[in-house]
């Protein structure tokens, strides 16, 4: 029998061209932020250990923490921490069978994205002006 439908069949999503839904993007971002937080924790623990090692060690670590490198790492970590925390709270809702409908998951994704940015800006304002 001739294949009359050639070239017109539905295809399974191909990773290179498939546009991930927002809930999928925020889901993989949870894993990425969780693992990336290792940079911030390493910087802070190095800084704490340097503080009990000696004045020279502390001067070096404190310089990095207060430099633009430290600013980028710690601000990035603050955002990653807020994002991961909000996404983790969403997982607690998922586990209890809530927010699982597509529109709800979509709305929760926006709440996580906007919430994490707002909380990071709030943290920076609190740090620099309070």
């Amino acid at each position: 029998m001739a294949d009359v439908n050639r070239g017109n069949r539905p295809l399974s999503p191909h990773m290179q061209v498939y546009r991930l839904p927002l809930a999928a993007i925020t889901s993989i971002m949870t894993r990425i932020t969780g693992h990336a937080l290792v940079a911030g924790i390493l910087l802070l623990v190095w800084w704490l250990v340097a503080a009990v090692t000696g004045p020279q060690a502390f001067a070096a670590a404190d310089w990095v923490v207060r430099s633009w490198i430290g600013f980028i790492v710690l601000t990035g970590s603050a955002w990653a921490l807020w994002f991961h925390a909000l996404a983790g709270i969403r997982h607690l809702f998922y586990d209890s069978g809530k927010l699982l409908r597509i529109e709800e998951a979509e709305r929760a994704s926006w709440a996580i994205i906007i919430g994490s940015v707002v909380l990071t800006l709030l943290s920076l304002i609190l740090f620099f002006f309070a």
Partner: peptide, 16 residues
């Protein structure tokens, strides 16, 4: 190792 380093630093600062 990260936990041990942090706890050591905090313990030393508390004792000092």
């Amino acid at each position: 190792a990260v936990i041990a380093a942090a706890v050591f630093a905090l313990a030393k600062m508390t004792l000092v």
